[in-house]
Amino acid sequence: MSLKSPLRRVTYLGSAKGGSGHWFAQRMSAVALVLLGLWLVAALATMGGASHANVVAWLSSPVAAAFAVLLVLVAAWHAVLGLQVVIEDYVGAKGQRLAVLIVVKFVFAVAAVIGVLAVLRIAFGVAA
């Protein structure tokens, strides 16, 4: 049984004075994903039946490569922001929550870098 007053328990460590950046970024990255997603779908739609060489040539263009890199980064960022909300909602134990958050962020950082490198290899003609 805790001897702390109910108000002391509620006020806890005080306000983090944060969270608004996360909230705003989640919404902005969603908007960016819609635009980048439309671009990807439109681009793929025009390339039905195109040869491997044609697709590689398309992705080597600076604009296509830039959008592809952005798509990878924004998708990973948005996924991390969204998973953070889910984890904060459902993982109650404090240490566990932080541990899961760190693991998720590391996994997505690795995935994002792999994705970016994959695009860059094609853009720079490393992969044939």
């Binding site: 306000s15 983090a16 004075k17 944060g18 969270g19 608004s20 996360h22 909300v85 904060e88 909602d89």
Partner: peptide, 14 residues
């Protein structure tokens, strides 16, 4: 607003 700006106090509302 300062007191409310917190990932848990306010932003748990979905």
């Amino acid at each position: 607003l300062d007191d409310l700006e917190d990932p848990f106090r306010l932003y748990r509302c979905h």
